[in-house]
């Protein structure tokens, strides 16, 4: 008879056991209701602990931290006050972008509702975009508003990528807002990537899961969709995105390799 310690039940709940150990505990649990409730409790504490800090992952990283790591010139020593800067800037950004793009933004961002909290989007993952990926190709070579099919539908349910708009950030870097769309052209993931002029690498500065569908009910900890939308709005504000480049200017930059 296996004596079920808290540590064993936790490891079972966390999926940290070998197959043999897992099977042994699963068998012991069948006749032990109290142990089953402890396993459920361990699962719950894992879920709520992750949920409690999930919003930090999708909010923009303060400029000063990025500047510290990249060794770039600091233009603001303090954390940008997002609450104050985000709203007016994002409004300017919205109204200044071309109509076609703004319609997509409304679908993608303004009307966004979060499906539920999930790990950060893998397709548009934070950090440098590996070369020779669909995302790198779309960012480097495709004009705004042109959906590009992925090789296959991802586990996130999306099968195409599309740049929504191009702009220059405060550091004069070229940045592009990109969305991952499902087969019905609904944006599921949105992100902003900026091009490092020295290396030509695109770096995803932020991404968020978005979807124009209602969240499923019955989940205790559904952060609002507005959180993730705000995170992107805040990111655009931090980057200093005030207006999208006109199509002809974008075309010229595409043709010249962003020079």
């Amino acid at each position: 008879m296996t004596r079920l310690t808290d540590e064993m039940l936790m490891a079972y709940a966390d999926g940290a056991l070998s197959e043999a150990e897992r099977a042994e505990i699963a068998a012991a649990l069948e006749s032990d209701a109290e142990a089953r409730s402890i396993v459920a409790e361990f699962r719950r504490t894992a879920e709520i602990s992750r949920a409690a800090f999930a919003d930090v992952l999708t909010e923009p990283v303060p400029d000063r931290l990025v500047d510290t790591v990249l060794g770039t010139q600091t233009h603001a020593t303090n954390v940008v006050d997002l609450a104050r800067t985000r709203k007016p800037r994002s409004t300017m950004w919205r109204t200044a972008i071309p109509l076609a793009a703004s319609v997509l933004l409304v679908i993608g961002l303004a009307a966004a509702l979060l499906v539920r909290q999930q790990p950060p989007a893998q397709l548009i993952a934070l950090g440098p975009v590996p070369s020779a990926t669909s995302l790198a190709d779309v960012l480097e070579t495709k004009p705004s508003g042109t959906p590009v099919a992925l090789a296959s539908r991802t586990s996130e349910g999306v099968d195409r990528l599309m740049v929504v708009a191009t702009f220059r950030d405060r550091k004069e870097r070229i940045c592009r807002e990109v969305e991952a769309l499902d087969p019905s052209m609904q944006a599921q993931i949105a992100g902003v990537a900026c091009r490092d002029p020295a290396s030509g690498t695109w770096i995803v500065e932020g991404s968020a899961r978005i979807a124009a569908t209602a969240p499923p009910s019955g989940h205790d900890f559904i952060p609002s969709g507005a959180d993730q939308k705000d995170a992107l709005d805040g990111l655009l504000a931090v980057l200093g995105a005030t207006r999208a480049l006109p199509a002809d200017e974008e075309q010229g930059l595409l043709a010249s390799g962003w020079k």
Binding site: V56, L57, V61, V66, L70, V79, G127
Partner: peptide, 30 residues
């Protein structure tokens, strides 16, 4: 350095979990 930039959101979350305050967390991460 780029890899560290990509880690910043997780570093901030880790620091926030330890410190309980965003300001302190960001100072610690910096």
């Amino acid at each position: 350095r780029h890899q560290i930039v990509a880690l910043l959101p997780r570093l901030r979350r880790f620091a926030l979990t330890l410190a309980g305050s965003r300001d302190l967390a960001d100072d610690v991460v910096q």
